[in-house]
Design a protein around this nucleic acid. Structure first.
Lengths: 322, 322
DNA sequence: TTGTATGCGTTATCAA
DNA sequence: TTGATAACGCATACAA
């Protein structure tokens, strides 16, 4: 490992002079600086991160924690985060699936963290925040001086979904939900239920799901078994909707007439279904951007506030449109 | 930041005693150890990574570099890597899209790196390896003492694809390729061409693509324009195949009769096409596992060799199978 | 069994 | 303009 010591020796100067040269200080002459830089280059010198971090107590690295990398979703969120960090000269590292790299947060190896992983326990986040780490959460509510939220506007999205369904004059409303412990699922569900009651006066049938394709398939069977016709289904995410399609297809039922479906998330696969899936969309990229911007503001001691990402319906055909 | 110094003070011992206690050394009495650990726990002590790294010259962190997180692909590979690392008590950090975090490699912040990103320049890898970093490449050939390859058996896969097409007695063979500078594309193409010549004696039409859906759509137009019928198309990846489906669909052409298609990669979306896409499959998870195992072996100074991931055809319908 | 002292690579303060 | 030196947090050889 070649360090500033070796460079200093070769250049016949002290290590502090080398440090000045490498950091572009104006305290030394241009000649010495150039000479030192040339030697550093020749030796393929790269500063040691651990040493620098130890001294500076700052890494310029942000940690992002996600649930997994599957599907099209995280890709766009991470891209949004990465873009903002890049222009602000921060590094991004991504940890997934509850591996121990979350330890980077209390160890201060990351200057801040962005969390989009329901499996990351809230108590742990709280503990880290107590210890002084700056954190942005994208998937829960958490009031803490060192934590800010950048969340999806699930309320708006659920209302839009119900309104779109109601506009097709369906007779029955069905909700296919996510897991019980998912805040996203619960907010969407509660909002949808009250929205149906307020705007149509009708009641709602709730079919429990789990945000997976398999769950949607099971839900389809349950819905068929009720014998109801002209039903509008709000699948609380697109994976459930995909499962519904599959479940209905097994019974030769085409979506869009007796069963109208609207999803949530605008998953790419929805565009490959027949008919294409109508869904609640939002900018995943923007979501990531805002999370990163908020975190950087916190780190730099600027004022910030929680942020909501707005939603909109993309009409594609699964409500029988066109 | 609470460090061993503060713990030592509270416990009325020296910092080395604290260090021994924290590292479970048997040099100290059980009582002092427990007492120290209790205090550490009470103060919410977390070891500082930079300090420890500086001393140990080892981080137990592996860096993985991918092209992006889009789609279903990287998810499985990363899972495979993560699983092996976890059981061996290594951390995984993932960098994507040419961000500067690749600097972690020469800075020795990662003990080794796994690269699956064609945009990661080979010269840079070589330079890092020259400087002593251990690296596993999954997407290119690179002979170097500090670099091992864990690659897809593109030759086997391409042969299997051509054989499957040939078995349907197509008259014409068409290849839709990836970018010129993609080793995957080039190996598959060259193998496919010679396989067609050797087994059928026929010649091959090559339509340049770029591994994207848009590229596939364009290729579909080009193929239709030739006026050929009964043609077997080997799309060098599934995204191209998806684009082909779309391009054919625009002309009301259903895949599987005049145009038979086989893809490569077994992308999830292929199962949502009609007919479902027949494709060359391989275990993405195993690919990741082998890469991680190889890297760990290198780090631990064990003997290793390059590894090939084998392939197989999954028959689903786009060759006109039932 | 515990303490003292040194060094990992870097930055930064102070003195020359 | 440059150099000597301390400090960051931790691990460990050696002394007590």
């Amino acid at each position: 490992m070649v360090g500033i010591r070796e460079i200093a020796q070769r250049a016949g100067v002290s290590i502090s002079t080398v440090s000045y040269a490498l950091n572009g200080s104006s305290k030394i002459t241009v000649e010495t600086r150039d000479r030192i830089l040339a030697i550093a280059d020749e030796l393929h010198y790269t500063p040691n991160l651990a040493g620098r971090t130890l001294k500076k107590q700052k890494t310029n690295i942000i940690g992002m924690y996600v649930n997994g990398f599957g599907g099209d979703f995280y890709s766009h969120v991470i891209d949004g985060v990465a873009q903002v960090l890049k222009t602000n000269h921060y590094e991004l590292i991504v940890g997934s699936g509850g591996n121990r790299s979350r330890g980077f947060i209390p160890q201060k190896f990351v200057d801040g963290a962005i969390i989009l992983d329901v499996n990351f326990p809230t108590e742990v986040i709280q503990e880290y925040a107590d210890a002084g780490s700056k954190i942005v959460v994208m998937d829960r509510e958490l009031a803490h001086a060192n934590v800010k939220q950048v969340s999806l506007d699930n309320v708006q999205g659920a209302r839009q979904a119900i309104d779109a369904l109601a506009a097709t004059n369906v007779k029955h409303f069905v909700l296919v939900t996510g897991p019980n412990d998912s805040p996203d699922s619960n907010v969407r569900m509660q909002t949808a239920i009250s929205q149906v009651e307020q705007t149509t006066g009708q009641s709602v049938l709730v079919v429990p799901g789990d945000f997976t394709i398999a769950g949607g398939r099971k839900a389809a069977k349950a819905i068929i078994d009720t014998g109801m016709k002209n039903v509008g289904i709000f699948a609380l995410n697109d994976e459930l909707a995909i499962g519904l399609y599959e479940g209905f297809a097994e019974q030769q039922i085409i979506v869009g007439t007796d069963y109208k479906i609207i999803g949530f998330d605008n998953d790419l696969i929805g565009t490959y279904l027949t008919p294409q899936l109508t869904t609640v969309d939002y900018s995943k990229h923007e979501w990531g951007e805002k999370a990163a911007e908020t975190l950087l503001a916190m780190i730099n001691g600027k004022k910030t506030q929680d942020y909501l990402i707005h939603t909109r319906v993309i009409s594609r055909g699964s409500l029988g449109e066109k």
